[in-house]
Write a protein that binds this DNA or RNA. Structure first.
Length: 400
RNA sequence: GGGGAGAUACCUAAGUGGCCAACAGGGAUGGAUUGUAAAUCCAUUGGCUCCGCCUUCAGAGGUUCGAAUCCUCUUCUCCCCA
């Protein structure tokens, strides 16, 4: 009983809303008293390949359930991905091809696998095309009859879009129904999602009730804000990808604004509230270092985290060159510096690289070059040339 | 089906015949500084064979010495009516 209570508390710490906590407590108690493990559903849309730390919050919660003997049921939304979850979007997502979906699903599972044990028996992984692929148009109509236009339009982002005179497509309104139907198909006991998913999770309860099942408990988790305080999103460039290499991941976390640290500690690390308080009362840079190391350590290893921290100090505090610099081979000859920079991938256009040069952002073997017309000789047996743009883009150039 | 409004660079959003490669804000990038890729300040933000040239303002035509701005058609969206 005490064990159930502490699990419940841990769950509450990572969640923003539980519908309902009483029901969850009952389920946990029942399960602990020899009942079946809870089927904890978490759905992901393989719409793009990057899973970031924001997604990791519900995944961490999923792991918590798994650690206590419950069964994660992962739904790969390969059926729903064809239309795209409208949540948080001002316009609809472009539809994906089957190939995109397959590739994205694979990388998703790989990245989620860093946090949750996905082996058969420990988890269940399902694709919702399994049931949606079999449905014909009449089944689809039947699904649509499960809700009403008014009910679906209650959704926050639909309401907003209607108010702003932006399009809301009919198929988008099907999305919550499909997600709800997934819950019916896998007989979910609990469903997890970010707190923008509340509406969709509720739909699962309704549809299960309609189908004569026990309605699932819905748990939403707070959304982890991006490094700049806005919603974490790849398109804002403020995300920390789970597949980022340790050094990048460490650096990205270090770019988090000081104000965001408390929440990141709570949602993305295993530190207790007391430990977090100690960090936050100390020096912000040290606190952020601990945060970054903990995050990198959790996904990779403590060793990787320590070395990422060292590399970071070396590169940004001491302005030394990093250890791993990509090497580009290039034909022997004489190059205008802007064109050379562009050729080795340090800029998208010569106009851009010219600006960087003029702005004092380009170094060659450690020396700032501000002459836009500078000519570089690439010799057959010469030493590797070190090109640097800004503080973190380095390339070695060698004749091939 | 009828009537009206709209589509501008990564995003938001000005501009309604020349002063527009296009105001402003956000973001991004570079520089200075520091406690970090925090904060703050400054600069840059279509391309090129770069002190000049080329291609942009949903798409295609047209009017004009000259168009993001005017006209015609097309595509897409929103609103009102049916």
């Amino acid at each position: 009983m005490g064990k159930t209570m502490s699990l419940l508390q841990e769950i509450q710490r990572l969640s923003s809303e539980i519908i309902s906590a009483d029901q969850l407590e009952k389920m946990l108690t029942q399960s602990a008293a020899g009942g079946a493990p809870l089927r904890v559903k978490f759905g992901i849309d393989p719409t793009f390949t990057d899973v970031h730390l924001g997604h990791a919050v519900p995944i961490r919660l999923l792991r918590l359930f798994q650690k206590h003997g419950h069964l994660p049921v992962l739904i790969i939304g390969d059926g729903t991905a064809r239309l795209g979850d409208p949540t948080g979007r001002n316009d609809q997502r472009p539809p994906l091809t089957e190939k995109d979906v397959a590739r994205n699903s694979a990388t998703y599972l790989e990245q989620i696998g860093t946090l949750v044990d996905l082996s058969p028996g420990a988890s269940e992984v399902r694709q919702n095309s399994e049931w949606f692929g079999k449905m014909d148009f009449f089944d689809c109509l039947k699904l649509a009859s499960a809700s009403t236009a008014a009910r679906l339009l209650e959704r926050e982002d639909f309401k907003n879009r209607m108010r702003e005179n932006l399009p809301v497509h009919l198929h988008e309104m099907m999305y919550p129904l499909m997600q709800g139907y997934d819950s019916v198909q896998v007989c979910a006991d609990v469903e997890l999602g970010g707190n923008d998913q509340l509406f969709n999770l509720h739909m699962g309860r309704q549809m299960q009730e309609r189908a004569g099942q026990r309605p699932q408990v819905c748990i939403t988790t707070p959304l982890l804000m991006g490094t700049d305080g806005r919603k974490m999103s790849k398109s804002y460039g403020n995300h920390v990808g789970l597949n980022a290499n340790p050094n990048d991941m460490y650096g990205k976390v270090m770019s988090l604004s000081d104000e965001g640290m408390g929440e990141w500690f709570r949602l993305a690390t295993d530190f207790s509230d007391a430990e977090i308080a100690v960090f936050l009362s100390g020096h912000p840079r040290l606190a952020k270092d601990a945060l970054a190391q903990s995050i990198v350590g959790g996904i990779y290893s403590v060793k990787a985290a320590v070395s990422a921290a060292d590399a970071f100090i070396q590169q940004f505090r001491n302005n030394e060159t990093p250890a791993d610099i990509p090497l580009k081979k290039i034909a022997v000859g004489s190059y205008a510096l802007p064109a050379l920079l562009k050729d080795v991938g340090l800029g998208a256009s010569t106009t851009e690289t010219r600006r960087l040069i003029a702005g004092g952002g380009v170094r060659m073997n450690g020396t700032v070059i501000q002459d836009v017309n500078y000519l570089v000789q690439i010799e057959a047996d010469g030493e590797a040339l070190l090109l640097q743009v800004g503080k973190r883009r380095f390339v070695h150039v060698l004749a091939n």
